[in-house]
């Protein structure tokens, strides 16, 4: 446990030297602040930020996560010849990236919110929750890909394909299925399919908060019926965190068998 905390400490130390983090914070900060200055009320600002959060956070987390893992190769080789377990090293690297990435997001979005609108309820918290959850999910996926693939170029390529799949292609596939099977009742199927895409889960959680689920038509009404109540939201949050836990576990399993 102590070792884990120390590894996180050294990762933080190393990361904070890079300019990445300053840029990442600045982007969120300026964007949120700008949206407020252009006269949005907190609800509108959250809604505009939603689209950024749903695309940018997964992309940055997954690409930066893989690159970070490849760049830590030397650190891993050095530590693994010391009396340190692979589990503390893997979790240390993971937490050492996921924690600062989430902190940076919380600061970048949270601080402008605080001074423009005070502490808000509802959509604002969901926005923060979804952003943090997506950071953890996509960092976990990034590590999984980096452990499985020795070649950097292939690994980074795979992360972009995976991001495209979740961010864009998946919805297309769902639409195609719905269209192809339009003669059948599809409510349950759609609900289930939405669980298999973390970005969709985030989007649903947020849209329901904005009370515009009706715009999504028939399935929207269904989502709102299911996800809108406490139980439905709990299922969505649980599914999101399962999306984090399973890749972390698979990644660790591959890492524990890896040759260095």
């Amino acid at each position: 446990m102590m070792t884990l905390l120390k590894i996180i400490k050294y990762q933080l130390h190393d990361l904070l030297r890079g300019k990445w983090f300053i840029i990442y914070t600045a982007v969120f900060f300026l964007l949120t602040d700008g949206l407020f200055r252009f006269g949005g009320d907190p609800g509108q600002v959250s809604l505009s930020l939603m689209n950024v959060v749903l695309f940018i956070i997964p992309l940055v987390s997954i690409v930066f996560g893989t690159m970070f893992f490849y760049n830590s190769r030397e650190f891993m080789e050095l530590l693994l010849s010391q009396p340190i377990s692979r589990i503390s090293l893997y979790l240390g690297l993971y937490l050492g990236l996921a924690l600062p990435l989430s902190a940076v997001y919380l600061i970048g979005v949270g601080v402008p919110f605080m001074y423009h609108a005070g502490i808000q309820t509802g959509s604002y918290w969901i926005l923060l929750l979804v952003g943090v959850s997506l950071t953890w999910v996509f960092t976990a996926l990034a590590f999984l890909i980096a452990v499985m693939s020795e070649q950097r170029v292939k690994g980074v390529g795979m992360t972009i394909v995976l991001w495209l799949f979740f961010a864009i292609l998946y919805d297309g596939i769902i639409l195609f299925i719905l269209f192809a099977l339009e003669d059948y009742p599809l409510e349950k199927l759609t609900l289930i399919l939405s669980l298999f895409n973390p970005i969709d889960l985030g989007r649903i959680l947020m849209l329901l908060q904005f009370d515009i689920a009706a715009l999504m038509g028939y399935t929207g009404a269904l989502f709102s019926k299911f996800y809108g109540n406490m139980f439905g939201s709990a299922v969505a949050v649980f599914a999101l965190w399962t999306w984090c836990a399973i890749p972390v576990w698979l990644g660790y399993r591959a890492f524990s068998k890896k040759d260095f």
């Binding site: 190393d14 830590s72 190769r73 030397e74 050095l78 010849s81 009396p83 340190i84 692979r86």
Partner: peptide
């Protein structure tokens, strides 16, 4: 992994966090 506390290892090519 505890046994590694008794081993000192010098790899062929020194690889450190740069």
């Amino acid at each position: 992994w505890n046994y590694r506390s008794q081993i000192g290892y010098m790899p062929q090519v020194a690889r450190f966090p740069e």
